[in-house]
Design a protein around this nucleic acid. Sequence first.
DNA 1: GAGCACTGC
Length: 697
Amino acid sequence: MSSLQFWKPGTSAPGSTLDRDTQAEGSLISSAPSYAPLSVQSQRERLPIYKHRDKILYCIEKYPVAIVVGQTGCGKTTQIPQYLYEAGWAAEGNIIACTQPRRVAATSVAGRVASEVGSILGDEVGYTIRFEDVSDKERTRILYMTDGMLFRETLVDPLLSRYSVIMVDEAHERGIYTDLLLGLLKKIQKKRPSLRLVISSATLDATSFLNYFTSSSSRDDAIIVSLEGRVFPVEVAYLREPTADYVKSAAMTAWNIHLQPYPGDILIFLTGREEIDRCLEELSELIPTRPKHPRRLIPLPLHAGLTSDEQLRVFDTADRDTRKVIIATNIAEASVTIDGIKYVIDSGFVKIRVYNPRTALASLATVPTSRASATQRAGRAGRTAPGVCYRLYPLSAYETMAESTPAEITRTDMTTPILQLKALGIDDLMKFDWVSSPPSESVLRALEGLVAAGMLGEDGRLTVIGAQVAECPVELGIARMMFKSKDFQCGEEILTIAAMTSVQDVFIIRDGAPGALDELERRKFTAEEGDHLTLLNGKQSSSVQSILCSLSPLAYNAFVRYGKSLSWCKSHALSFRAMSRAVSIRSQLKKYMQRFNLPIHSCEGDGKRLRQCLVSGYWRNGARWVADGTYRSVRGNQTLHVHPTSVMFTRKPRSGWVVFHEMEETKKTQIRILTEIEPDWLLEHGHVLVDKRSAQS
DNA sequence: GAGCACTGC
């Protein structure tokens, strides 16, 4: 059956039939919406948000917390800080801050606002993200920054005293740093009542933020300021019956839209690369069936695994007689905004990372989206003109969806965040006023791990090393290696490994035949001892052997030696973006080591010392090889499978033992980035946790 | 013998 029937709620008629054979009947709900052509409104005063200007300013003046509700694109991010600036909130050296969950948002918005204000970026208007501070200590009045960056600033200035107003944008996304920041800001405001908070959120979550910021005794703590809805309406249609294969249905729906005589690009939401590839195949089977169709359909994949060049293709303006259909992951829901999308096709599913504190396992689960997320996806069709969203599920399924996606803090490892809170002097975590509490199991487990690692004493108070590690922007185990590298004289190499394990998607393996070549490139750098290090017999190199970090065939040192070049990366299946980022991270971490007076020596090719140092960070991640080629975890005796990208995938460790960087549950429990070790080291360089257990047995 | 949602410091 090739027919997909959609209907629009609120109409008694069954709506339209999206059928490749019967589309000529033309009752498609997307047919010719009538709207006036847009005139370009460049004047700020003519933005829809402008008429709310006085109301916004009044509420911020009168209420400690203003929760601003407005759809993406209404101008709140660019305009509200400017209104505040004009109203004098940045007088006397004060700064108006606006936090963003993503780096791109912080940089691009700052650029736009700087030009609206008529200033050079980095002067009156600036931004701060990791590795980039484009602001002026004296002159910057409006500062855009990532929320993680402002959270970190509280370690240095606990009252955030430079700021008169802090606007937390996209708070409804509920990223972990947004949540942590909101908790801190509520606390700061008690000590510094003059600080004003603006929380920007989507409709559904506004009341939960209002409740969070409202005390039982007062109604004047917080207020919701509602800005007008979106500029362009988006019609929503649901499938009448559930579909067994939403990938195929998505392709068919896109094709049926394409057969309509109306222009506009299409955006499809699927969950991952595999589905995107399959959807591309389904579409390519449909495309030749109408070779003489006046308009050409151009399918474009969009997911984080693509190179930036490939990602940028979705922004190419299509020719007049073509139509783009962008097949994307959740990256297009908020991170990447494409104008000109008129039709959205929503599978209704998303992949999210879930953390199980009991087993310390992270897994990727495909789950139904939330209603808030479905609304956000639909909104992507109405950015520049009215649009239509086809949901590949029935209205009844929509009604069973959760209102919003659970906050990240409820499904993530809390070890690092809790160490940071401890460093801020927040000792009683059970009393901390969370926007959403992390599961108590997750807090307890984090505390236990921090005590075992020597970051907290048995009394739960921060140790000297704990205070220093809290400042380092790396995972706990990696930080521990950095500190222990003093004993093993291998700081140089540990820095590289710390940087390389902090970046993802170092390797770019293409689809099909080229992918096999990429694999070959990757294998060229294989190291005997495993993924973390490869000893390279370099003749001309000043040290006899150079360390290569081989998540892959990409070696950090080789990258540096070949002039950090893009073409070198391309020919070795490496991501230039990821490698360049590793270079930045390494230099940042180096500064931390210098500040803590940690020597940065090279182990001069002594892989044993280096691997012992690795054990001091990965002491909880030991595993033993068993005859069927799998491993058993030291903790929990779980069956572990080696990830296919590991150089240990094909070989047995001589000692029979490894440590690994991370463990993730897919269809099986897999371990990534492993290195062979001697089992004794786990006892010697591991920690109290291991010692205690062996003492008991 | 086989796999990769997305951010952030």
